[in-house]
């Protein structure tokens, strides 16, 4: 079998390429006139960070709700099951090739996806980023779930109160390239310079890549590497869940304060069991709904994406495009054991 290894390896490569080919040749959009102003003929490719993430399933629910209201087709929800930058670029190129009239993207990497998106813009495909922004010249609009400063302040506020404004804490984030998490972390660091937080120190920022094992291992390392650690702030639910589990399993830091972003359908019980006093999030259904309305306004030529443009966003009322083409959904919501059940409808995935 030894001497067969080289042809075998060759065959493996061909096979892998074939797999990659299969994955990327799935039609994500049918041919259509890119410049058409009619929503009924408009194919919108909605590219999430990963299709298996319930957050993006909720985004899709909101987008399709808006599409039904405005008489558009349901969005083409295309992406890889797991977060994969290369996969995102392939989906963008695919949508461009099929002359999709618009692309909505939550970018895993703002730089890596930019060249492909710029090509899409060049052929008059509208590009609207949501959740995580790309380079500003690679999109027309960015639909921001909440102002980064407001989110950072909301998370740090919970952490600081639970830590009595004293002690050391760490941040457990998702991918180190994720623009949204990085902007919230920057906001936390900025807020931390205020005198209120003089006795609090951020010792380290680590990344769990949105993966339960990596996040768990990272949380364990933090607790062991910093035995006096007072808290972990996790600006993504996988990190929050993993740090709660690690704290419970290790049992060495029972008073460790944990907060950040939580996913109410899974994490409501963390609040009810008192394992986390409060966490922050926004409505992903509303974010998807707003993203579709903004995209529709661009496609129909109602707005160009210039600062001060206003458009009707259905049940969310009239919205205005801010500086740098950013449209903000609203203030982040703080969930506690008392209000989390009432909010569950904002997180439906189908």
């Amino acid at each position: 079998m030894h001497h067969k290894l080289i042809p075998a390896a060759g065959a493996v490569i061909v096979f892998a390429l074939a797999l990659a080919g299969c994955a990327s040749s799935t039609p994500s959009a049918t041919d259509s006139d890119a410049a058409a102003g009619s929503l009924a003929d408009c194919d919108i490719s909605l590219i999430p960070k990963s299709t298996d993430n319930p957050f993006f399933a909720s985004i899709r629910v909101g987008a399709d709700e808006a599409a039904a209201e405005l008489g558009g087709k349901p969005v083409d929800f295309v992406g890889t099951a797991q977060a994969d930058v290369q996969g995102q670029i392939q989906r963008v190129q695919n949508a461009t090739l099929h002359k999709a009239c618009a692309i909505n993207i939550a970018a895993l990497d703002p730089d890596a996806t930019a060249p492909a998106l710029t090509q899409a813009l060049d052929q008059d495909t509208k590009v609207v980023a949501f959740d995580a922004d790309v380079q500003p010249d690679a999109r027309t609009l960015f639909i921001n779930q909440a102002d980064a400063t407001a989110l950072g302040v909301a998370m740090l506020d919970i952490l600081a109160k639970d830590m009595n404004y004293t002690g050391t804490f760490a941040i457990l984030s998702a991918q180190s390239t994720a623009q949204n998490q990085n902007s919230w972390i920057a906001a936390v660091e900025e807020e931390l310079t205020k005198p209120d937080y003089a006795d609090m120190t951020l010792v380290k920022t680590v990344y769990g890549d949105d993966d339960s094992k990596k996040s768990y291992d990272a949380a364990v390392s933090l607790m062991q590497g910093y035995p006096d650690l007072g808290g972990i702030l996790s600006p993504e639910p996988a990190g929050l869940e993993a740090s709660v589990k690690a704290r419970d399993d290790l049992g060495t830091n029972p008073d460790l304060v944990l907060t950040g972003l939580g996913w109410p359908p899974s994490d409501a019980s963390l609040l009810k069991d008192g394992k986390v006093s409060a966490f922050v999030l926004w409505s992903p259904v509303d974010l998807g709904y707003l993203t579709y309305h903004a995209t529709a306004a661009l496609v129909s030529g109602q707005i160009t994406g210039a600062e001060g443009d206003t458009f009707d966003a259905g049940r969310l009322g009239e919205r205005t495009v801010g500086a740098n083409g950013v449209v903000v959904l609203g203030d982040p919501a703080v969930y506690t054991a008392d209000n989390v059940d009432a909010a569950l409808d904002d997180f439906r995935t189908e």
Binding site: D52, A81, A83, D211, S212, K213, Y216, E241, A242, K245
Partner: peptide, 15 residues
Amino acid sequence: LWGARYGTVDSSVAT
């Protein structure tokens, strides 16, 4: 064991 140890199980487990 993976599910029991790491808590959250989705389709990306053990990639």
